[in-house]
């Protein structure tokens, strides 16, 4: 028994040590994010944004309204009242004119304009928030049932409510806190920008299918948010910064942050102040997957560690049982 115990402890120690400590000690290498040339995205230039919220309005129309509602006379509908969302709306929310005053991203909108204003310095800027369509998205890595997926051609991160189990792990895993949940509904879903690739209603075409543009970019009168291939947008962003050095912070947010994102930001005001989190140059998802795959290294689709652990445990237990049975026969209790 002594020897089996020792072998087990040794096996367990080696296994556990190798599995658990490797990722602790090995820091994730900062590798440059790789995007394929056809990936699309958006570029938001905070210095051009005038805060008119046309994008919020059009996003709302594009994503939450039935086509027939959009054609109705204006006084016959409020975007909110016609949505399925009016269950928990406060009286204030229901006022048609004020519906854009949604405080932050939530189930009512996939897109929001926020304002940064420092009364002391007079520093002042708008920021548009929506899904960043990350290169290595936390939400996709977290989702247990492939309800969040990243399209490998376009790079768009899409959501499939037909698969989603509503576990909300995507919300936990998104460093930008983007996915929103319809808390007020018994049959809720996750709401997040899908670059207008999907309609809220199964039976109608998405905005992108109809107009080959996201609604927000289509609507923006100042061209503060533009749609295009990520590579072109990055070039454009760098060109703007180079041409007007005083006008911008010397950084394209999303070029490397969180392993790179398909939506890029440039701004005069520090990105932190705009509410963009300070993120490392790698995605947490990459690190988490690395940890998980170190523990569950597979050879020919068989996870090695659990199988070895099982075999070891079963062998020891069977040996013990054989010994005990022999003792029982020998008369000991």
């Amino acid at each position: 028994m002594k020897s089996t115990r020792r072998t087990f402890i040794k096996a367990a120690a080696v296994g556990a040590g190798a599995a658990a400590l490797t990722p602790v000690l090995a820091h994730a290498a900062d590798h440059a994010p790789s995007f394929n040339p056809d990936e699309v995205g958006m570029l938001y230039d905070s210095t051009l944004c005038v805060g008119c919220k046309a994008c919020v309005y059009s996003c709302r129309k594009a994503n939450f309204e039935r086509d027939e509602n959009a054609r109705r006379k204006k006084d016959m509908f409020s975007p909110l009242r016609n949505s399925e969302a009016d269950f928990v709306l406060t009286a204030e929310d229901a006022l048609e004119t004020r519906w854009v005053d949604v405080y932050d991203l939530d189930y009512r909108t996939k897109n929001i304009i926020k304002m940064y204003n420092d009364p002391d310095t007079g520093e002042f800027a708008f920021v548009k928030r929506q899904c960043m369509h990350c290169n290595a998205p936390g939400c996709v890595s977290a989702c247990p049932v492939k309800a969040m997926t990243k399209d490998h051609v376009t790079g768009v991160v899409e959501y499939d409510r037909g698969k989603c189990i509503g576990c909300r792990y995507c919300q936990l895993a998104c460093p930008f806190n983007i996915p929103a949940y319809e808390w007020h509904k018994p049959l809720a879903r996750i709401i997040k920008c899908e670059l207008c690739r999907k309609s809220y209603y199964d039976d109608q075409k998405s905005y992108f299918e109809k107009y080959e543009q996201p609604a927000c970019c289509d609507a923006c009168p100042a061209k503060a948010v533009i749609y295009g291939k990520r590579a072109d947008l990055l070039e454009e962003a760098k060109r703007r910064i180079a041409e007007n050095p005083g006008r911008y912070v010397d950084k394209v947010y999303g070029e490397f942050d969180y392993g790179g994102t398909n939506v890029l930001y440039i701004s005069k005001v520090d990105f932190n102040k705009l509410g963009m989190p300070d993120l490392p140059n790698y995605s947490y998802a990459t690190k988490s997957e690395k940890l998980q795959h170190t523990i569950y290294t597979t050879i020919a689709h068989v996870p090695v560690a659990p199988v070895v652990l099982y075999a070891t445990l079963a062998t020891i237990a069977v040996t013990h049982r054989a010994k005990r049975n022999k003792n029982d026969k020998g008369g000991r209790s």
Binding site: A147, Y169, Q292
Partner: peptide
């Protein structure tokens, strides 16, 4: 979980997502 009626997805191999710790 909010969409419990979809929970059968755990038994549908095409939906398995081995990168997900939750899975």
């Amino acid at each position: 979980i909010g969409r419990y009626w979809n929970a059968y997805g755990f038994f549908v191999p095409s939906r398995w997502q081995p990168n997900s710790v939750m899975f």
